[in-house]
Amino acid sequence: MKRKLQSTTSKLLPAAAILALLAIWELVSDTGLVPKYMLPSPVDVCSAFVKDFPLLWENSWVTLAETFIGLALGIVIGFLMAMIMDFFTPVKKALYPIVVITQTIPAVAIAPLLVLWFGYEMVPKVILVVFIVFFPITVSLLDGFESTDKDTINLMRSMGAGKIQIFRYVKFPAALGNFFSSLKIAVSYAVVGAVISEWLGGFMGLGVYMTRVKKSYAFDRMFAVIFLISGLSLLLMLAVKLIQKRCMPWENR
C-alpha cells in the first residue's frame, strides 16, 4: 500500500513540475513580460500544432523513416563491429581508437560534407544517423561482452562449449542490459541527427520544415516542431523500454 502510494507520488511530482513550468511560461507570455512574437505561449503553440498538423504529419514520416533506417543500420553495424572486435583481439586493438576518434568529429560538421557528397535525398541523412548511432552501440556491447564473469566462461569451456556457443549463451545475453541502455540514448540522438542533417539541405522532413518556418519568423510553429521532435524522441525511448522488458524477462522478477 505504502509502496503504491510512493509510486503515485513519484509519478505526480514530475508531472506537477512540468505543469508548473508551462503555467509560468503561459503567464510570462500572456502578461507581455516577453513580447508574444518572440515567445508564443503554450496555448499558441498548441493551436499552431493543430493547425499545422497535416504538414507536420507528412514531414514526420520522412524524418522517422530516416531515423529508423539509420538506427537499424547503426545497430547492425555496431553489433557486427563489437562482435568482431570481441572475437579477434588484434582487430579490437587496431579499430577501437579509430571508433573513438570518429566520435570526436562533430556530427554537425560532417553533415554539410555528406550533403555535398550524397545529394539532397535520404542517403546523407541516413549516413549521419548511422554515424551517430553505431558508436554507443558498439562501445556498450563490447563492454558487456568483456564484463562477463571469467569463471562462468571457464565453466562453459569445461562443459565443452566453443567460442560461438559461449558468445550465444553467455556473452550476448549478458550484454543485453548494456545494449538497451545505450539504445535509449541512441534513439534520441538518432532523431536529432536526422533533423540536423535535414537543416542542411533536403526536400522533406521536420528539419526542412523547421528552416522554412524559421525564415517566416513563425515562432509558434517553430515551437510546435520542437515539441513534436521531443515528443517523438520520448515515444521512441518508451518503445525501447517496452522492448527491453519483453526481451529480458528475468529483469522483472
Binding site: 564473469d149 569463471d151 562462468t152 565453466l155 569451456r157 569445461s158 562443459m159 565443452g160 562449449a161 549463451y169 553467455v170 545475453p173 549478458a174 543485453l176 529480458m248 528475468w250
Partner: peptide
C-alpha cells in the same frame, strides 16, 4: 569438455 565441475559460486546464468 570431458568432466565438469562446480564451484562455491553457483554460476547459474541469470537470464
Amino acid at each position: 569438455g570431458k568432466i565438469s565441475y562446480m564451484l562455491q559460486k553457483d554460476l547459474l546464468l541469470p537470464y
